[in-house]
């Protein structure tokens, strides 16, 4: 049994310690907001927070997450009201939407560590999140908007 703390809830799961965290999240805990894109750390669709870091859950063994705090897109905010989530809606960022759980989870680490990022900071933070629909300009715009809202205290 491996004990996982996901989105503030403790779970005890019966899984091979080598199982990718992504499998445990999606198939055992039914948290399907986190997506499987490549399985080899190349696309960023599977990004979740592990003790606040934007790890790729497809290559993170579930044993690494044992006893640590995992946050998925479902747990990023209480009411889907993280400034990034609101900015994503305002700008209508997604096309097919598949990459955006990972995009938002990566962007959340950026905004936590750098509340007022430049375009270059955004590139440095987001270069590992691929969007096959090419929504990059809207992602950048939404991150700037979320940064502005965050500076005003999460309100619009």
């Amino acid at each position: 049994m491996i004990s996982l703390n996901v989105n503030g809830e403790s779970h005890s799961i019966d899984a091979d310690p080598e199982m990718p965290l992504l499998w445990a999240l999606r198939d055992i805990l039914n948290l399907t907001g986190t997506k499987y894109g490549c399985g080899v750390a190349q696309c960023g669709a599977c990004v979740v927070h592990l003790d606040g870091e934007a790890v790729r859950s497809c290559v993170t063994k579930v044993s690494r997450a044992g006893g640590r705090k995992v946050i998925t897109i479902e747990g990023l905010s209480a009411n889907n009201d993280h400034p990034l989530q609101k900015a994503w809606q305002e700008i209508d960022v997604p096309q097919c939407g598949y990459c955006h759980s990972g995009q938002i989870m990566s962007a959340a680490v950026l905004l936590r560590e750098n509340p007022n990022p430049t375009d270059a900071d955004i590139d440095a933070a987001m270069s590992g999140n691929i969007c096959r629909c090419g929504t990059y300009p809207r992602i950048r715009k939404a991150i700037h908007l979320a940064a502005a809202w965050q500076a005003k205290g999460n309100g619009r």
């Binding site: 990004v47 870091e53 790890v55 290559v59 690494r64």
Partner: peptide, 13 residues
Amino acid sequence: GVYAMKCANCHQA
């Protein structure tokens, strides 16, 4: 690494 692009986000132990 930086922000969401830290080495250990992909490179495991």
